[in-house]
Write a protein that binds this DNA or RNA. Sequence first.
RNA 1: GCCCAAGUGGCGGAAUGGUAGACGCAGGGGAUUCAAAAUCCCCCGCCGCGAGGCGUGCCGGUUCGAGUCCGGCCUUGGGUACCA
Length: 846
Amino acid sequence: MSRYNAAEIEARWQDAWDKAGIFTAERKEGKPKYYVLEMFPYPSGKLHMGHVRNYTMGDVIARYKISTGHNVLHPMGFDAFGMPAENAAMAIGGHPKTWTYNNIDDMVEQMKPLGLSLDWSRMFATCDPEYYGQQQSLFLDFLDKGLVYRKNAVVNWDPVDMTVLANEQVEGGRGWRSGAVVERKELTQWFFKISDMADELLEALDGLDNWPAKVKLMQANWIGKSRGLQFGFERVDGGEPIVVYTTRPDTLNGASFVGISPDHPIAKAMEGNPEVDAFLAEARKGGTTEEAIETAEKLGYDTGIKVKHPLTGAELPVWIANFILMDYGTGAIFACPAHDQRDLDFCRKYDLPVIDTFVSLDDPKPVDKAAFVPPKSEKVKWVDHFAGLDEATGEEAINATIDFMEAKGLGEGVTKFRLRDWGLSRQRYWGCPIPVVHCDACGVVPEKKENLPVELPDDVSFDQPGNPLDRHPTWRDVACPACGKPAKRETDTMDTFVDSSWYFARFTAPRAETPTNAADAEYWMNVDQYIGGVEHAILHLLYARFFARAMHICGHLPESAKEPFDALFTQGMVTHAIYKSEGADGRPVYHYPEEVTLKGDKAVLEDGREVDVVPSAKMSKSKNNVVNPLHIIESYGADTARWFVLSDSPPERDVEWTASGAEAAHKHLGRVYRIASEIDADAKGQEADDTALIREMHKAIHDVTMGVESFGFNAAIAKLYGFTNALGKSNAGGKAKREAALTLAQLMSPMTPHLAEAVWEMLGGEGLCALAPWPVADEAMLVDDEIVMPIQINGKRRAEISVPKDMDKAEVEKLALAHHAVQKVLDGATPKKVIVVPGRIVNVVA
RNA sequence: GCCCAAGUGGCGGAAUGGUAGACGCAGGGGAUUCAAAAUCCCCCGCCGCGAGGCGUGCCGGUUCGAGUCCGGCCUUGGGUACCA
């Protein structure tokens, strides 16, 4: 009897799969295709357990689909542009390109031992000129179709380093390197017209039956379709009316002031006035994130301008307020402090009036410290409502108000979206160059397609802040493609979300001379199963949906690929406890898990010092709570790592990596190997034991298949533990045991493919286990002949009876009522009600 | 701030509105062994000697029956448009 040797088995079978070329995808007629894709990684250089979990899940699906007769496409690539490469170049020197490609090589080396069923021949990185050149070509097509345009937008500006900062580079409102207070500054930038498709992107969510409801809900809220009233406030001084948009026009009587964004034309027109300038400078401090703006202290400035209330004729002041976004609605609002907490806080601070427009039916008191904001569906009592309402819900009042205002010719009901156009300009080097040239004579001129790719220059340095492309004369200064006169290249590069918005389409024909190839796109699209982190629920997935539509408009994808991902699964993170002690300088020191020994609930270093254990957190380099998959593979093998990341937690939830868990997983795989190796095919057994084992086998087939198909990997694995136990204890004959073990190998094969092949071979399975047809459960074997039914009395479990599986309800009821526990409680009385749920439960209501 | 989730034994978790705690870890007991490793068997939510009672973050509701559905909170996590 040989022992389970993962290293030997894994190398051997990876080699066998490679030689047989079973994962290389080709178009084949006669077999249904299946495209499974995991969100591709950023090449940080270190593969972590989160990657292992993500790719193992995809691999389970891919291998399962191979077994069920599908022609599977399962590719891998790298999302290779982005800030970390530039940060590394700044911090440790070197070039982003070298850093990135070295990391890619390292990560491929780390991925290969996992035995993933990937078609490596299709691999690419988004920083390959062959890829980003095609992306530039797409950009020019989009430009041609009016899907791209330029406008001003605000960025985080570091006034000391004189550079644009990413949101991540703003910490507490200050630049992460300079420490200077960040300002919001306007720049002219490129935008994708995603807002044109807002309604379609919203409506189409309905058709995504195999997407998680929460993702669809988040996207729907993000797109934020709303119906409201748009109308103008006449200015007392006779200037242009101030147009506002509101989703709560019903509260118009409660208006206490008109607020405009610091970026509103009226505010801008007042620049030059030192007091206004001082206020605007203050209001523009801090980062551009919605969170920063929403949570910043509310500031206001009274412009002195007065407007007339359209219904009452009362004069209202116009304030500039830092919490009003120019990007949403019209950049101007009216404030109703009685029914909006933010407005109320502002009005209390600046001593502006608070007017109740409606009060609660149960508790009709005026607003004091808390705004009264009931759900729009709740009926409330209206105070002197102009449209004659007395008791009505907010919804009814909104509609009545819009009708009223439209009838009077004072405003109109309009539909607006929260979704803004997608700004794609980045003032950075390591990204896809935007292929246009700025010419004094011709304006913005697209680069000619035959000149693509516009390649990034290699001779750049990162010794000073700012975009190196801006200070690279030989790259920047070019002849205008239209008139030939001296001109300047666009030095902004594209947002890395652009790179990841179409890579799934490129995988269908990664070496094509055009962005996609029609026949390949037609055959392979859509992605049948997409798997990735829930952190991408909104941006990446929405941008990809937009891109698929835009690519269809430009003829790069078929109509049927407008929604590119048929099914989506969002998985959780891999977490680990953090081991922390205090260094000599009082700062925290983080220790790697391998430096720590666990003794009960204490964690001890090699030198005997005890360290604090902080409960599980996302694995992060800065906290050193990372487990290197390579170390796990070296000590236990890839199958153990794969089995463990799938076994302990439901895939959509976070999983905590524990050393004991990994050991347990390894022990179990060794047990499977041993049980299989001990089977003597000629051994005789009892017929009853054979039947019992085969029955267990069919139940396992059923449950594991369900588990794999519904992403219940942890439940499938629990079932496999049970089936292995049953097989280990069974007194069945060798023939039945061999059949059961072969099936066990197949059922485990998507999760632990190497071990499965070894067991399959040991027991004389035909060909590769990976290619063997998936077993099918015999329905007749799934239900036992006798079932145990619990009896509840008034909802509490009191007894149980064993009955034949198909006994009818009346018989069951009779048996239940005859049970002594029931008799005792009833004490001769007739039960009020008896509920028999066939095959489930009996409830007696006494 | 706003949007979306999650919360069940010592731990990870299981449970189409129908026996809460499957399966695994940790722990306890035993077998085997000269001894150990490995392996195998049994026990294992809390309170209680027991009968029994209490238990799925908190408060309330719907139901014959709620971990599951509804309303309100609390805590943690994800997103918040330039991290990917």
